[in-house]
Design a protein around this nucleic acid. Sequence first.
DNA 1: CAGTTCGCCTGGGGGC
DNA 2: TGCCCCCAGGCGAACT
Length: 277
Amino acid sequence: MPELPEVETVLRTLQAQLQYPKIKKCEVFYDRLIHGCTVSKFQALVEGQSITDYHRHGKFLILELDDYYFISHLRMEGKYYIQSKNEAYDQKHVHAIFTFQNDMQLRYHDTRKFGRFYLYKKNENLYEQEAFLHIGKDVFDPLLQADYLYKIFHHRKITLKQALLNQSYMAGIGNIYADEICFALKYHPQTKVYRLTKKDFSTLLFETRRILSEAIASGGTTIRSYTSSLEVSGRFQLQLNVHMRKGEKCFMCGSTIVKTVVGGRGTYYCPSCQKRK
DNA sequence: CAGTTCGCCTGGGGGC
DNA sequence: TGCCCCCAGGCGAACT
């Protein structure tokens, strides 16, 4: 489940490993991967383009090409592999291959086919394009401030967890970190978001950035173990306080971590540390 | 606007 | 060992 830190790790790894090569060939084997144009058009437009820069917005990976932005959303299980052309691969789950001039390949692997690719001309405003229509500011955008969040959420009846997961105001948080952020705030994930004060939103932003930064730093340390068949999934080993810890002891108070469903998502919390406001 | 449910997908786990 | 069913979950769409 790549969230912002994993996407950032993938981005940094790709940038370090690939740098700025020219795409000799582009092959897409799964039609629905591409949104906004046909597969054949996508392939034709990408071929001959060089990667000129790497960006990220929320959970979107943005590869800047000569004339286009190539956008990749990994959704649940998207991964990239950098391998040489003659190295074998999992044909069932590799849905796109970019071949560079040195015959190295960037291979997109996605077991459940939820991931998506988009391609936009650089002379169009990226944030007016379909992929970003309902995507808010990146979590690390300095323009994203507590006052803004308070204004948006202080009269909405959704839960804290749902607010964190909603990408249209603040982009980058997924199910794992939403739980971890609620824990850091010591609020029950079902706390109604209109109960939060400006100060709460200020803490929320601080804790969110702290947790995601630590996850990025941690991802940065695990990607050292490169091999020729590097799996660039952005996996990392960060100590999680609540997520996936059902039945285990809370590190803070020793109570048993509980799992429930909030907004249709599996949600973990410590019933003792986290209270509804 | 809020909430619920479904569809997209496939592997893995539980139940038998 | 095998088979069926359900679940996981990001996210948009459809419906109440």
